[in-house]
Amino acid sequence: MSNGAWVGTWRPHRPRGPVMAQFTSPGPKYYVQGATGYVSHIPTKRKAPAYTMHGSRPPPNKDCIPGPYEVLSSLSHRGRKSAPAYTMAGRPRVRVEITPGPASYSPEKSNKVVYKRSPMHSMSFRTTGAKVDTTPAPNLYAIPEVLGPHTVATSASPCYSMAWKSKLGCFDEDLHKTPGPAAYKKPETEIYKKRAPKYSIGIKSKVIGDKATPGPADYELGKVSLIKSCAPVVTFGLRHSEYTTPLIVDVY
């Protein structure tokens, strides 16, 4: 039911539902779209392609193969060719829509709509208010820390903590069980320094081969004519045959 004074040609009326402008701010309750999946994906983020896994297809049924078709005699390559056929049927049923007549209306009740009249008020029960303020209370927010290593808005200094003695062992206990210096073999100095010559005394070696070679006394140094000049040596040979062909040299 309307109430209030006229504002020009418009008169304020009671709102059908709660108006958000009449209440305080709802607080930070905005919905941010997600970046995973494909339903309601945020448009500012890149969406990767999505694939679905399907099961294997059922084996084909051999019984579903169509057999030979029955071709009617009235069908040709240009379509169906037959004489016109008529059937006898009943009269179709007409659906009559019953509309209200002039006596069904009450024009006398339209005065309050057509003509101006004073406002009328009625007394009724109090309506239940709509619950629109569903924002969290101030004590539900967590204020970020300003001390310690987990600060958000301020710079944190280095923090140190004192811990108790470890249960693994003392500081001099070898937890890794590594070998000591005595477990390694000392290398020879000849590996990483210059090595001096070594000599060894062995037995007399055997003569290689049984063939006797000539000694220095077997050579005659006075009969050497390869590196020194000597007198001509003449030898006596056989008489040559008279039928021997003499050496002929072509002289041009």
Rank of each mutant, 00 (worst) to 15 (best):
G8Y: 01
R11E: 00
H13A: 02
G17T: 04
T24H: 09
G27Q: 00
Y30C: 12
V32I: 06
A35C: 14
T36M: 05
S40R: 14
T44P: 01
P49M: 07
S56L: 09
S56G: 07
E70A: 04
S73F: 00
L75K: 06
S76K: 12
R80L: 08
Y86I: 06
Y86S: 09
M88H: 10
P92G: 11
I98P: 01
S104D: 12
S104F: 06
E108G: 05
K109L: 07
K112M: 00
V113H: 13
Y115C: 04
S124W: 01
K131S: 11
V132G: 00
T134V: 09
T134I: 08
N139A: 08
I143L: 11
G148C: 01
T151P: 01
T154H: 12
A156D: 14
S157N: 14
P158G: 02
C159Y: 10
S161Y: 09
W164I: 13
S166M: 10
G169W: 03
G169H: 01
F171W: 11
D172P: 02
E173T: 09
D174Y: 03
P179W: 01
P181Q: 07
K186F: 10
E190K: 10
Y192I: 05
T213V: 15
P216I: 02
D218E: 14
E220F: 06
G222A: 15
V224E: 15
C230S: 15
C230F: 14
T235P: 00
F236A: 15
L238F: 11
L238I: 12
R239C: 11
E242I: 13
L247T: 14
L247M: 14
D250E: 14
Y252E: 13
